[in-house]
Nucleic acid binder design. Structure first.
Length: 431
RNA sequence: GGAGGGGUGGCAGAGUGGUUGAAUGCGGCGGUCUCGAAAACCGUUUAGCCGGCAAACCCGGUUACGAGGGUUCGAAUCCCUCCUCCUCCGCCA
């Protein structure tokens, strides 16, 4: 959510922001609703003032036993109330319309966000590692879905049997690898000062609203029960931990992490990434969330990216980082850097972590503030950041493909060996 | 699942229809006193919205006592629904 005063007083700022996103906003509608709303409020409040004053007089008259005068005054107030009722209906309509409009407006891109209309215009800002040259080694790399199926560690058919398409079963060392990754990620974050949480994976509407998934993206949310949802990412619950709270400034920045399963409808993604475990309805992810002072949030974003990079470097997986252009920027983000890992099956880099600075956009929606008596009176909105660190599934796919051997086995990255208890993943004996 | 009792300002805790945005205590802030500190004393201390304005937390108004509805000229105070916390019983891991 943006500051309504900004839209009112500097609509040109939003014009520019929306242009950068290659979107638009209904400025005329905003201005007419806003004007109407304020007009109605002015009248209704004036009437209320009148009513409140008269009511006090009635109290006094009753005390003096002047019943007739009191009755006459009551009649006057009833008429005022009728008018207030009419106006209140109008005000509610205006409030709802304004709220509807405001909650559908995305965040304003930061200055450093490149121009561009879609992901083809994202700007690469860093490249690390060199993709393995399988041709030089004399064999054709297999995609992880083939490797996983023949090793017996990925079972797509049974995932469909248990649930539906895009649900997967990990078997044997596949499960072990998933668990190893999760533990390795969490252990690393903990070592680096992140506080670990185990939140519920079911959340309510207010929670999804706070981080910006609702109301605009209800179709993407995974519904359970009439008004509850399975979280699409731990960002949602970690950020909302502090909804309607004011944090002492000296406790910032805060670095949080959590492992949770994530659920996505993936509505509209039919036909894309249909094979393997790249895009599924349920996947495991370790998430990072930060709460920061406004002047510090850009630095914290760098720290967050560094944390995700650390994991990939230790895993020795080649990646590059792209600065998302305006047209590819997510709804709540003011700036996002995607880390993309090399996937031989795609012969390209594929998103594995998305680190965003949301500025005060989510904080305003979720009402998360901070205090700093030495700097200002009262409280202000803080900045929220989130990033994957990392998803287990896509990381597993990347490991399988990048660490595969000619015989179809998979070498275990060194940092995971203590967790895996082996150096190589071979064929599962029981299928 | 059943029975009962609560949800009030940063915290504790009054308040059962009228000038209560809300007593009192604690805490916070400012001051007096002090070499300084403590103690004591004095004062002060909620937020959103609308308007005045170029602006201001400067003034006026309005809203808010878990949330939403209702009764009333008027509700923290009465009624209804929901949420939530606590106690007891039952059930289950």
């Amino acid at each position: 959510m943006l500051d309504i005063r900004l839209l009112r007083e500097h609509p040109e700022v939003l014009d520019a922001a929306m242009a950068k996103r290659h979107g638009s906003w209904d400025k005329e509608r905003f201005q007419s609703i806003d004007a109407k709303r304020r007009e109605v409020i002015a009248e209704v409040e004036q009437l209320r003032a009148q009513r409140n004053a008269t009511s006090k007089q009635i109290g006094a008259l009753m005390g003096q036993g002047k019943k007739d005068e009191a009755e006459a005054a009551k009649e006057g107030v009833r008429k005022i109330n009728d008018r207030i009722d009419e106006l209140t209906v109008q005000q509610n309509e205006a409030d709802e319309a304004l709220h509807e409009l405001m909650t559908h407006i995305p965040n304003i891109p930061a200055e450093g966000v490149p121009e561009g209309k879609d992901d083809s215009e994202n700007v690469e800002v860093k490249k690390w590692g060199t993709p393995r040259d399988f041709a030089a080694e004399g064999f054709e790399p297999k995609p992880h879905w083939d490797l996983g199926t023949s090793l017996g560690i990925l079972d797509f058919d049974r995932g469909v049997k248990l649930a539906e398409s895009r649900f997967t079963v990990l078997a044997g060392m596949g499960g072990r690898l998933e668990r190893a990754l999760i533990n390795y990620f969490l252990d690393t974050h903990a070592k680096h000062g992140f506080k670990e949480f185990w939140p519920p994976v079911v959340c309510n509407r207010d929670t999804l609203y706070g981080t910006g998934q609702l109301p605009k993206f209800e179709d993407d949310a995974f519904h359970v029960l009439p008004d509850f949802f399975l979280i699409p990412t731990a960002e949602v619950v970690l950020t909302n931990l502090h909804r309607d709270e004011t944090l002492p400034g000296d406790t910032l920045p805060r670095h949080y992490t959590a492992f949770t399963p994530c659920f996505r409808e993936e509505a509209g993604s039919a036909g894309r990434d249909t094979r393997g475990i790249i895009r599924v309805h349920e996947f495991d992810k370790v998430e990072m969330v930060m709460f920061a002072r406004p002047e510090d949030s850009d630095n914290q974003l760098k720290a967050m990216i560094g944390e995700a990079e650390f994991l990939l470097q230790e895993l020795k997986l080649p990646y590059h980082i792209v600065n998302l252009c305006g047209g590819d920027l997510g709804f709540s983000a003011r700036q996002t850097f995607d880390i993309e890992v090399w996937l031989p099956s795609y012969n390209n880099y594929k998103e594995i972590s998305s680190c965003s600075n949301c500025g005060d956009f989510q904080a305003r929606r979720a009402n998360i503030r901070y205090t700093d008596p030495s700097q200002f009176k009262g409280s202000r909105y803080l900045h929220t950041l989130n990033g994957s660190g990392l998803p287990a599934g896509r990381t597993m796919a990347a490991i399988m493909e990048n660490y595969q051997n000619p015989d179809g086995t998979i070498t275990v990255p060194e940092v995971l060996r203590p967790y895996m208890g082996c150096d190589v993943i071979g064929e599962e004996k029981l299928k």
